[in-house]
Each structure stands twice: as C-alpha cells, then as structure tokens.
C-alpha cells in the first residue's frame, strides 16, 4: 500500500492527546507515525524517558495499544520476553497465532548508554522486534544532561559551556553503525520531519525476519533551546547538513534514502539552536571546524558504504584554497 496521508487519516493511530510532552516535542509525532505505519497489531515496550513519563501517568494513559514500561535500560529485553511469550503460548496452543509487532521506544540515553547491553543482547539473540530510538541527543527527562548521542560542543546541564570547556568535549557514537554491525536484518536512520521516509522504513522493518532498528532524529525544543514551531525545520536542517543522513542497511546493504549531496554547512544548523550559542560567540572557533570535520568524515564513510564517491565540503575546499 502506498502511503497517502489522506488514507492514513482514516486510521486510529492509537495515541491520544492530553499527554504531557512539551509543546512542539517531536516524540509523539514519531510515535504516531510509527503506529500509523504498522500493519500488524502492536505491543509496545517503553524505556523510562520523556515519552513514558508524559504519556503514562497513572491513572491515565495516552496509549490505546497494549504497553509495558518496567525500567530505563531494559525495554529491548521487555520485548524479548513478550516475543518469547508469544512464541511459547502459540506453540502450546494457549493462544491463536495472529500478526503482531513488538515495538520498543527508547530515548538515546536508553539506547546509546544505559540500555546498550540490553539492546545488544536482544539484537544478538535475534528476537523479532522493532526498536525505535527517539534520538534527542540527551537525557531530557532528567533535565537535559549529555548522552553518548549528544554532539561535540553542545551545551547540556552536565556539559555546561564554561570558560575552560565549551560544552560537550566528545563527538558522539555511531549507534546506527554499531547496531548494523550486529548483522541484524534491518537498520535505518530517519528523521521526524520526513514522515514518508520514516513510515516506509517502519513498514520495511515490520517485514524483517528478525530485529529491526530505527534511529530517529527527534528534536527537543526545550533542551536544544529553539522555538517549538521550528522542530521540523531543525530536523530538516540536520539532514541537509548531513549531520543526520537518511539511510538504511537492508540485509547488510547500505543505501542513502535522503539527499545524495550535502547542501548546507554545519554552521547553519548550529545557528538554529541556543545550545550552540556559546560556540558562535567566537570563543571557540576551533570547535565548529572540528564538528564540520566530524560530519564530513562520517558522511564520506557512509557514502563509501553506499558505494558513492566521497564529497568535499565547500568549507574544506575553501580552507584548502586559502592555505595555498
């Protein structure tokens, strides 16, 4: 079935309004897109984080699909248990087989950091489940602390922009690549603004014969310090600057799904958010270059994996020219 928004409006997405996520938060937008794209009956496992505390506050729930949250680090393992239960209940004839999809939503903290081992174990065991990382580059639920997904130079409450250290000193981990190295059937990067790409990926993931992982770019207006109406614009910028390329790894084959060329320098992205303001006040000019160099390196490595020629950035070219 092709994805047409008008057709999708006829469906119930299974997620109600009245939740407590901030105005302009991307997390619920991603949840709705994922649930709408699923063909099967979902069972959801949540990790502790903004989404969970805002959508399942007793006595209420925003969810109209079955859901479990048990802790911060173990949502992939909840899904392992549910999938195992499903298989055994069917095998014992205690439940009729029916098409179901076990979906996990975990933040970048839950995915990159504290739940890394739980996720890796579940991937290696090959449970059939879909893991969606809501990547807002920080521990937002506990007040915007850095995570392994936070990028270099970003202000967070645990990497404040000080006189000595200008925000987070480290780059970020390539979690999508790490998951892909597990050799699971389907891995992809998506972004909240590109609903069609995201929903197409959810559908591919649902058909995978094993674990599927989607790392979804999820801007957080509160933590990134921008106006709530810019959530989609910032997501788009991340793709255009190649900070967050849209791609998939389907049965080991890398493929770019988004723009094939980087169309903007990273500075455009940095300028869009308050969390980078200190970098722009020329205190640390070196950091911006370092960020650009990291983006370029990762972009070219990805292009190579996709069988494409490396691409040089205008800035790198300029620098090379002026050095002559």
């Amino acid at each position: 079935m092709t994805l047409k928004l008008r057709d999708l409006t006829l469906l119930d997405d299974g997620f109600e309004s009245g939740h407590g996520l901030c105005a302009g938060c991307s997390e619920s937008v991603i949840v709705r897109q994922v649930l709408l794209a699923l063909a099967n009956e979902p069972v959801v496992a949540l990790a502790t984080g903004c989404l969970e505390v805002s959508s399942t506050r007793f006595p209420d729930t925003a969810w109209k699909v079955p859901l479990i949250h048990s802790a911060f680090e173990n949502a992939a393992t909840s899904a392992s248990g549910i999938e195992a239960a499903y298989k055994a209940l069917v095998r014992k004839g205690r439940m009729a087989e029916r098409p179901m999809t076990f979906v996990v939503f975990g933040g970048d903290g839950a995915t990159y950091d504290i739940g890394f081992q739980w996720l890796s174990g579940a991937l290696e065991r090959g449970h059939k489940f879909m893991y969606i990382c809501l990547n807002n580059e920080g521990y937002m639920n506990t007040g915007i602390q850095r995570s392994g997904a936070t990028m270099l130079g970003a202000w967070t409450t645990t990497t404040p922009a000080g006189d000595l250290v200008p925000g987070k000193p480290q780059w970020r981990k390539d979690m999508t690549g790490i998951v892909a190295s597990h050799g699971v059937p389907y891995v992809a990067q998506a972004a909240v603004h590109h609903w069609k790409d995201l929903m197409t990926k959810v559908r591919t993931a649902e058909k995978a014969e094993g674990p599927a992982f989607l790392n979804v770019f999820a801007p957080c207006d509160r933590g990134w310090r921008y106006e709530p109406e810019d959530t989609m614009a910032i997501s788009r910028l991340a793709v255009e600057t190649a900070l967050w390329p849209l791609y998939e790894v389907d049965d080991g084959k890398y493929k770019l799904n988004g723009p094939r060329h980087k169309t903007r320098p990273i500075i455009d992205y940095l300028e869009s958010q308050g969390r980078f303001r200190h970098l722009l006040k020329d205190k640390e000019p070196g950091v911006i270059e370092e960020i650009q160099a990291n983006v370029d390196r990762e972009w070219n490595r990805l292009r190579e994996r996709c069988g494409l020629e490396p691409e040089v950035t205008p800035e790198t070219t300029e620098a090379a020219v002026s050095a002559d």
Binding site: F15, G18, G20, D60, W63
Partner: peptide, 16 residues
C-alpha cells in the same frame, strides 16, 4: 492502567 487513551481528559489547551 485500563483506560486506553484517557489522557484525553487532560485539557492541555490551557498551556497555549
């Protein structure tokens, strides 16, 4: 929680 979608009763329009 056995009240699916019950957050609907929270009128978050007041935040606006």
């Amino acid at each position: 929680v056995l009240l699916p979608g019950s957050t609907e009763r929270n009128l978050t329009g007041s935040w606006r």
